[in-house]
Write a protein that binds this DNA or RNA. Structure first.
Length: 464
RNA sequence: GACCCCAUCGUCUAGAGGCCUAGGACACCUGGUUUUCAUCCAGGCAACAGGGGUUCGACUCCCCUUGGGGUCACCA
């Protein structure tokens, strides 16, 4: 069988981490099986869909390298097809016009809730044998409802949840076309999945309750039933539901916040799926290993700290020139005017092992490219007469050195011995003056990278 | 409320009846390396929600309870 999966977001806002994981698993499963991964934009809600949101989806997928096969499909371009099949359903008696107004529906729902029963459409316009339908009102544009089988049950073997059974009597006659004639979600999904020969429907488990409706529709349309895989939710780090206002950052926010796409992918893949004890794996390995047997059926909490750890891993292992490309724009944003490539590369090499975030990374090496403000605190802590004299003496000697990293670091040790001081007594004040902070890697290496002129400038600027 | 889903360390998870004295990772704690801070290395803390079955034997299978979550739209 030729595997076809799809990612079907609605362009109504940001693409967040939950959506991306659904896309990721669908993508991985298709790739693993040498199948097709379709990107379909579910924009039938004309009121809420926006072109900006479509861009967000495209950019997010691109950033994460989740490439889809073929062109992006927009449901709004398929209205003719939906209409055709709605008519077919009407013709074969599986759908009917319903003239109940929204107000009446609200009223009905309220009544049912008050009575403590499950709120659902009561089927007042559903044509049945020996049933007298109400008179058609004048000013109501009808919706079209699907005639859900009134008994029996729908069951399917979910790839992650196992056997799921839902009785038809739990379902009501869903609206497949609004009063303005536009088709609704459940109907479009079914038509598209069937037209596009989707074999595996992979989506969030908030769709479980839609599945029996869709299966009924599929049956009415005489279409094959795909396999279903309902993924559990991702919860915010406090265990609450992820929502726009609560922890559900847009994917692109992660880029802006200093995360690498491969780290996001790796983290997300690991959230709800596992391959033994493997924690770090590439997109290629994910494709090779992915399966539904190891997709977790319970919800997972988002853990920022683990993401950061994975991010740090990928930063440590990334080629310097690639990191430079990522960090350069960040430095520019921070106000750097001139960027020396050698200094940048060397600084990256020196700092790479200690960084877990690209933004912080840029911030940490910012001092290489612009002057620093020495805080009063550091000044008080490290700069007294003694340390100032030491620095002057040190710089006076260091500028005579053969300018290599090793020479400078070697000399620092000699200097310490000669002056009978402890290493930090010279290293810390230098850090403060040169880097504006007391947390840096080897200060000798920093001096080397910066060059003697810049170092002297910084020192005289502060010690003057 | 009805229906559906879920349940192993704080978190992500391994575990397909004996391999489990429950493993790994993040976080945390301790020690080592170190030029401060990190990195790195070594070690440590820490869990099968509860109760019934089934079985010679249950983390693993079944049932109930409890607890979490989802869905009940002319949204997707």
């Amino acid at each position: 069988m030729n595997i076809v999966t799809r990612f079907a977001p609605s362009p109504t806002g940001s693409l967040h981490i939950g959506g991306i994981r659904t896309a990721l698993f669908s993508w991985a499963y298709a790739k693993k099986n040498k199948g097709k991964f379709i990107l379909r934009i579910e924009d039938t809600d004309l009121e809420r869909s926006t072109p900006e949101a479509v861009e967000i989806i495209k950019n997010g997928m691109k950033w994460l390298k989740l490439d889809h096969d073929g062109d992006i499909i927009f449901q709004t371009q398929r209205f003719d097809r939906y209409k055709e099949l709605i008519q077919a359903l009407l013709d074969q008696g599986d759908a009917y016009y319903c003239y109940t107004s929204k107000a009446e529906l609200d009223q009905l729902r309220e009544l049912q809730v008050n009575q403590g029963v499950k709120p659902k459409y009561d089927g007042r316009w559903r044509p049945e044998e020996n049933k007298k339908l109400p008179g058609i009102p004048n000013n109501v544009q009808p919706v079209i409802r699907f005639k859900t089988p009134s008994n029996g049950e729908i069951h399917w073997k979910d790839l992650v949840k196992g056997e799921v059974v839902i009785k038809n009597e739990e379902l009501d006659d869903l609206i497949i076309a609004r009063s303005d004639g536009t088709p609704t979600y459940n109907f479009c999904v079914v038509v598209d999945d069937s037209d596009m020969k989707v074999t595996h429907v992979i989506r969030g488990d908030d769709h479980i309750n839609n599945t029996p409706r869709q299966i009924n529709l599929l049956k009415a349309l005489n279409a094959p039933i795909p396999q279903y895989a309902h993924l559990s939710m991702i919860l915010a780090s406090d265990g609450q539901k992820l929502s726009k206002r609560h922890g559900a950052a847009s994917v692109m926010q992660y880029r802006d916040d200093g995360y690498l796409p491969e780290a996001v992918i790796n983290y997300l893949a690991r959230l709800g799926w596992s391959h033994g004890d493997n924690e770090i794996f590439s997109q290629e390995q994910l494709i090779e290993w992915f399966d539904f047997d190891h997709v977790s059926s319970s919800a997972a909490q988002f853990d920022q700290e683990k993401l950061e750890w994975i991010n740090s891993y990928y930063i440590k292992n990334k080629p310097v020139d690639e990191l430079a490309d990522l960090i350069k724009p960040r430095l520019l944003d921070m106000g750097v005017e001139r960027l020396d490539t050698d200094i940048l590369n060397n600084a990256i090499k020196l700092y790479q092992d200690r960084e877990k975030n690209l933004n912080v990374f840029a911030g940490d090496i910012l001092f290489f490219f612009q002057g620093i403000d020495l805080s009063a605190e550091l000044k008080n802590k490290y700069l007294d007469e003694k340390s100032k004299n030491l620095i002057k003496a040190f710089v006076g000697e260091v500028e005579k050195l053969n300018w290599t990293n090793d020479e400078i670091n070697k000399y620092m040790k000699e200097f310490v011995k000669e002056k009978e001081i402890k290493f930090p007594e010279i290293a810390m004040p230098l850090r403060a003056i040169i880097a504006g902070t007391d947390n840096t890697p080897s200060i000798g290496s920093i001096i080397f990278i910066l060059g003697i002129d810049d170092v002297k400038k910084r020192i005289s600027c502060i010690l003057k």
